[in-house]
Amino acid sequence: MEALIALAIGVLTGCGVYLVLRAHTFPVVLGLTLLSYAVNLFLFATGRLVIGQPPVIGSAAAALGQLADPLPQALVLTAIVIGFAMTAFVIMLSLRARAELGNDHVDGRQEGGTQS
């Protein structure tokens, strides 16, 4: 399972970085979204992967040192909320840039290179 999670995080991050480096705003927004998925999975894994255990101290599992760490779960929740809000904001900003600059290039220039 570790390999699967690591692979998923790696692929998401790789795709995210690739998309963020594109020159148009839509792929960039998609790339930011993929990156935030990757970081959420990553944060989830920072408490170490534990299967089928409650995140409760004092349980029988906890006595064996096998409880699921509750803190990363709380962090992921916070990160999801913030990431969601920021994605909404950057989409609105991209739409505004599309309207004000006349195209969806991140620098606001046409393919020919002239700056609008």
Binding site: V20, T25, V28, L32, L35, S36, A38, V39, F42, L43, A45, T46, P72, L75, A79, I82, M86, F89, V90, L93, S94, R96, A97, E100, L101, V106, D107, G108
Partner: peptide
Amino acid sequence: RTRAGLHYVVLNLLGSTVFLFAAGL
């Protein structure tokens, strides 16, 4: 302002992602 703002926002969102990776590590 919109053009500079778009760069600023995207870069800082990337920075926030890296911050989360760092905090997780």
